[in-house]
Computed example of a mutant assay.
Amino acid sequence: MSELPDRRLLLVHAHPDDETINNGVTMARYVAEGAGVTLITCTLGEEGEVLVPELSHLASSETDQLGEHRIGELAAAMAELGVTDHRFLGAAGKYRDTGMIYNDEGNADVPPETRKDSFWQADLLAAADDLIPIIRELRPHVLVTYDQYGNYGHPDHIQAHRVATYAAALAGIPSYREDLGEAWDIPKIYWNAMVESRWREGLRKLRESGDTTTFEGMDPEGPLGPFVTPDRFIDCVIEGAQYIDQKMNALKAHATQITLDGPFFALSNNLGNEVWASEAYRLVKGTAAPGPDGLEHDLFAGL
């Protein structure tokens, strides 16, 4: 077995681009510091909307080649962040992007019909068994994934949460599937979080600038729904201003999904890039080791 880095971070995400939006600065920071950073992506994002007109033929409703194209986008984004170990769960394309609809409440939800090969329909134990050997091989100190709502309700995010949670539990049991490697109990597990106060501040500034269409229908003073996390639940905030250019370039690499005039960059135009330079987390397993401000600023704090 090759020598493992002293600090090891594993991230489990649903589609290409989720990792950069949620954790781009975090990943770039730990790569720069010499930690081991591994990304697992569960689907190819085949059902994504194609925002580049000349590539619209790739859509699932046409040639259905978007997933293949997004493998290249992900590789380009990871090159920007310096992440050399990025893998697909099971194999590239084993689990199909489920797609999503918006329900009557305006939240993401499961489409009325899903394909047999969709990630949503995957057997939970079988999918966990695809992740367990990676956990046991890499022996990560920290796992990052979504909360039980998948942050905003997308079925693949919810399933990624379930698979990561189940695999992490089973990977630590010595008598479970010895053929998948030696047991490893991950010391710290975090969920990605959108900080409520920051969202409200960002929306406020957008509305003050006269922008009423970005994140339409969201009132900075009203209820924001389950995708934001109350500030009191935030345990760790990674501030990475020095890595923001890498994150923005990685976002641009996901060109079919993220446009420079879309909501991500609209926020940047009004708030500056600092809105994307700060990435927040909830600690759900392990012991918090907060600093003087009551927060951790290192996912490996206390280990």
Rank of each mutant, 00 (worst) to 15 (best):
H154Q: 08
L58Q: 06
L260H: 03
T63W: 04
K252W: 04
D179G: 10
L206E: 06
I101Y: 11
V163H: 02
T84Y: 00
A28Q: 03
D211L: 04
I135P: 04
D85M: 05
V25Q: 05
A28E: 01
R162L: 13
D6N: 15
R7W: 12
E178S: 13
N192V: 14
I135K: 09
V37P: 03
S60P: 05
H57C: 10
I234K: 05
T26R: 03
S209E: 07
T84L: 10
D235Q: 11
D123E: 14
D147M: 11
G210E: 12
L125D: 13
V142M: 04
V237H: 00
T41N: 08
I173C: 02
E68V: 14
T287C: 00
P111L: 06
F265I: 08
T63I: 05
E3W: 05
F215D: 06
F264Q: 08
N270D: 09
R8Y: 10
Q159P: 00
R207G: 02
A76K: 12
S197T: 14
G291T: 10
E49C: 00
A301D: 08
E274C: 01
N22W: 10
D130A: 07
F233M: 13
A126S: 13
P133W: 06
S278V: 12
Y190N: 01
V52K: 01
V163W: 01
G99K: 02
A169F: 12
T41Q: 07
G240Q: 04
A193S: 14
T287Y: 01
K94P: 01
A108C: 12
A277C: 13
G93T: 06
Y152I: 05
A91N: 01
V195Y: 01
E182C: 09
L39G: 04
L74G: 13
Q65N: 07
E274D: 14
E46F: 05
I135M: 11
L251C: 03
P140I: 07
K252D: 11
R282H: 14
A91P: 00
L283Q: 09
I186W: 04
D117Q: 13
G90Q: 09
P16H: 06
D123S: 14
G48E: 04
Y149T: 00
D211P: 04
R87P: 05
Q257M: 06
K247C: 02
T41L: 08
